[in-house]
Amino acid sequence: MNHHHTTTTTDPSYLALRMKAVESLLIEKGMVSGEAIDAITDAYEHDIGPLRGAGVVARAWVDEEYKRRLLSDGPAAIAELGITGFGAEVVVVVENTPQVHNVVVCTLCSCYPWALLGLPPSWYKTPQYRGRIVRWPREVLAEFGVTLPNEVEIRVWDSSSDTRYLVLPQRPAGTEGLSERDLAALVTRDAMIGTGVVARPAA
């Protein structure tokens, strides 16, 4: 099956050397600059992360009208909050309810709503998660600490380049008096993938 050259090794020092060679050639040929690479890695390491998605969730929790718009046209509602960028234009928001729990995967690679959650965690990209969550969603969720009653329906959403899903988690009880900002602070990345739920704040 090796019809093309494949980097079969996963030796980190080999891969580091190989990438160093690729980068130096790309820069030398004027195809990319070191500064352009720095700008992107900095953005994803420091600025673009799950707080963006958490802000969207909190707004939906406090504003019914906004939630309605978010569920019917995700990209437009997300753009209202000033969030743009990779994947934002193809986001579909799915709502958790007492009857339905949603969870997101990308079975083919690692599609993910970067603009709202940043880059995916390592486990999201593993063959194990990508394969198992589809076949045994209830069991895999339990491994994440999400134990759902049997009557709750689990919907697994397979992302693609055309559609990237964000889970709108249920707002926990006991948060009635919280501000939008404080609500956002409760929302975890895993809750927006569906492998977590938003916990009630500690009293």
Binding site: P12, L15, A16, L26, V32, A36, I40, T41, Y44
Partner: peptide
């Protein structure tokens, strides 16, 4: 986000281009 520096370079270069 990245396990090693080369991963961030590979990501950044691909997205930049």
């Amino acid at each position: 986000v990245f396990d090693a520096p080369w991963e961030s370079r590979a990501f950044g270069a691909a997205v930049a281009m």
